[in-house]
Design a protein around this nucleic acid. Structure first.
Lengths: 163, 163
DNA sequence: ATCATTTGCATAGCCCGGCTATGTATAGTG
DNA sequence: CACTATACATAGCCGGGCTATGCAAATGAT
């Protein structure tokens, strides 16, 4: 079989990593009973950690297409969790910013989520906690570093904007 | 801000873990250009590692509602990636099994995915690889142990120790 | 200064994946 | 033989993902 706990190479390790993450994400989604979707929290997270930004930037950082970001921002705006501020320099664009309510909701969700998962991880010893801590750090770094890496590389359009 | 790389407690660590996993999942989804959705691979993974099982069992292990599993299995059946085998003991149920083509597709996807992410992780030293390996193991154990962690059920059952 | 191009976002429209509510057929039980 | 319980299917909704396309503002060329 494949997805056991003992990958034997970096390649299969990465495969396992993604697989187990998918399972964890589903687990997390159900653990809270939160009616909000992962996309909502992901978007808020990006905005919260990156500060106010334009919609295109948000789409890129969130790794979604621009129309998807438009939808998400619309929903979040209706909920009062983000705000659109006019950009004085460019009338086409607006800055998307998390509201206080949005930041609070995000924190509340993270707490609830972590609380729900805590029992599962409560028995971790110090070493394992350190392992997870470091793993989060590693993956976070890679996710950041992947900003330049190919959302549109192998598609139809040739990469013209390289100069 | 919040989602940095240095969580200070187990609670915030778990929050960060889920957050970073969401980002990685998005990254992975786009890295391959695969037209198939994460749900497809998650389902195949569950079936592949768990062996043939009934639909309800699949839904539970996949952490989705039963009708969702029905849809996914329908799609996968049309693609020829899973097969429904009549259960001789129970005419209501059928065993869902991954076909050879399904297993191949899963392996191919994992390889492609891992290959796409490899550049991001290529510079990991031995220690960091070991960290990720262990993290995958830990999370996998918890995901397994969370079988009893139902959508509405209180979470009191600690995982039963590690091998 | 005007026109063409590019850029940034919005809209339209599709499909899939998630859910609840409900139907239906088989199992199990008295 | 009814009656309940179980396993799955169906219906129907909604959100999130995408591509294609439209439009208005910024930019650049002449």
């Amino acid at each position: 079989m494949y997805s056991g706990g003992m990958p034997s190479s970096l390649l299969s390790l990465l495969g396992d990593l993604v697989s187990v993450n998918q399972r964890l994400t589903r687990l997390a989604a159900r653990a809270t009973g939160s009616s909000e979707s992962p996309a909502v929290w992901r978007t808020l997270s990006v905005l919260n950690s990156g500060g106010p930004m334009r919609l295109g930037e948000l789409a890129e950082l969130s790794r979604v297409a621009q129309p998807t970001a438009t939808k998400l921002v619309s929903n979040l705006t209706e909920r009062g969790w983000v705000d659109r501020l006019a950009d004085p320099d460019d009338a086409r664009a607006s800055q998307i910013a998390v509201t206080t309510a949005g930041a609070d909701a995000l924190i509340a969700w993270r707490d609830e989520l972590a609380g729900a998962m805590l029992p599962l991880f409560a028995d971790l010893d110090t070493d394992d906690v350190a392992v997870l801590r470091r793993a989060v750090e590693i993956i976070g770094q890679r996710a950041d570093a992947a900003a330049d890496l190919a959302p549109g590389a192998p598609v139809t359009a040739p990469p013209e904007g390289q100069s």
